[in-house]
């Protein structure tokens, strides 16, 4: 299968929020094409009468009662972040 166009790989990388260099884009163009050619085997199946299986076990997800309980403290939640300020995660400015 022909490799994906570099522009298509770059568009996917943007959707996936990945900054890729040119060499990686070229490699992924080949690898994605090979992968898609392999999984095209699924087209052999007539699935017109099959319901998609969205999860391993058919179940209705339970909801807990809407009652406050113990939760992570703000300090615990922030402890893994590289930058915090005033009890919040610090991020680059999004508004000038």
């Amino acid at each position: 299968m022909a490799p994906l166009a570099d522009a298509e790989v770059r568009a996917l990388a943007h959707l996936a929020r990945l900054e890729l260099d040119d060499a990686t884009v070229a490699r992924l163009a080949d690898e994605l094409a090979a992968h898609l050619a392999y999984v095209a085997m699924l087209d052999e199946l007539d699935t017109s009468a099959v319901e998609p299986m969205t999860h391993a076990v058919a179940m209705t997800l339970r909801l807990r009662d809407d009652v406050p309980g113990p939760a992570l403290t703000a300090d615990d939640a922030l402890a893994g972040a590289a930058a915090t300020r005033d009890g919040c995660f610090e991020v680059p400015a999004v508004i000038d």
Binding site: V9, L12, A13, L15, A16, L18, L20, T24, L28, E31, L32, H35, L36, V39, L42, D43, L45, T47, V50, E51, P52, M53, T54
Partner: peptide, 29 residues
């Protein structure tokens, strides 16, 4: 990175029916 890129491809709105939905039907089989 490779798997994120594959996953992004197969769930993109113009690919989803051909890849992701078909795979979920194959899973049922």
């Amino acid at each position: 990175v490779r798997r994120i890129m594959i996953g992004t491809f197969v769930t993109r709105v113009d690919h989803r029916a051909a890849y992701y939905d078909q795979a979920q039907r194959a899973r049922a089989l």
